[in-house]
Design a protein around this nucleic acid. Structure first.
Length: 272
DNA sequence: ATGGCTTACAAAGTAAGA
């Protein structure tokens, strides 16, 4: 009898507005853990009740007023909960829990800054923030890699706001100078990924030669028909978990729900 | 034509997303 662990990530773009969609998603897909980004509320405004009712009794929230905010909703208890600040800002963009499974499993939930419009840190402070944030992520994990006690069994999920590969965007040529797909961002994401040899779990199931998106703009007249998507959401695992990967899916259907988030949820199942 | 839309908010227009 093998046990599995299913982890989901979803930029919900207001958890209060879309709590019914969160409930529907949990009922239909039954993940063990759901990591949310852009909850856009303070801790005490988070809709705990309907989630507890579904058996998701363990909820870690790192909220802030109006913007950003991350949460982890779980059926599995947490052994520890913490968060980290980046770029000297008090933004709620990171949350970390240790799941109470055999040998423990550390889960990082990130909401990386979008970066504004102009891909030049000299004239765009938002882009400088994004690059600085990613640089500190890289330094953090590079530091861990140097420690004697090697960190093991970690999963990193979230809206990283970077679509690194050619087929992570609808047109590499058209987006090469557009924030989310510029070489400087892609290189930095690569550095973060290299730090602990993170495995891109989504691409273990869909070859790099195939288009794979998790976000479609609100602005398209028909998002599905135009299909100008980007893969901004990611699930990474440390190498010791690579052989445990069982399945992955982007729940594109949820992007088509009434008044949907512009991001679709992503799910990964691990054998543990 | 990627910004055409969507969100929060000491509520009409602003800031932000990506």
């Amino acid at each position: 009898m093998s046990r599995t662990l299913t982890i989901a990530t979803w930029n919900i773009n207001s958890v209060r507005l879309r709590i019914d969609q969160v409930v529907r998603f949990l009922q239909e897909r039954q993940p063990d853990v759901l990591c949310l980004q852009e909850i856009k509320c303070q801790d005490d405004q988070f809709p705990f009740k309907p989630l507890r009712k579904l058996g998701y009794e363990h909820v870690a929230v790192r909220g802030q007023k109006a913007y950003h905010g991350v949460a982890i909703v779980s059926r599995i208890p947490f052994l520890n909960t913490t968060h980290r600040l980046f770029y000297d800002k008090d933004d709620a963009r990171h949350l970390e829990v240790v799941l109470d499974v055999k040998d423990g499993l550390t889960l990082h939930n990130f909401y990386v800054p979008a970066g504004g419009d102009e891909p030049d840190p000299e004239i765009n402070e938002k882009f400088a923030h994004k690059l600085g944030f990613m640089n500190e992520m890289a330094q953090w994990y590079e530091g861990m890699a140097l420690e004697k006690k090697k960190p093991a069994r970690m999963v990193l999920v979230g809206d990283l706001n970077i679509a690194p590969q050619v087929h992570d965007v609808w047109s590499h040529k058209d987006l090469i100078r557009v924030v989310s797909h510029t070489p400087v961002e892609v290189d930095l994401l690569g550095r973060v990924q290299s730090s602990l040899h993170w495995v891109d779990a989504m691409r273990r199931f869909v070859p790099e030669s195939e288009k794979l998106y998790s976000w479609w703009s609100y602005r398209a007249k028909d998002w599905e028909a135009s299909n100008r998507g980007r893969r901004l959401d990611h699930i990474w695992v440390t190498p010791d978990l690579e052989e445990n990967l069982r399945s992955m899916s982007v729940v594109k259907e949820a992007r088509g729900w009434e008044r949907a988030s512009d991001h679709a949820p992503v799910l990964v199942t691990l054998g543990i």
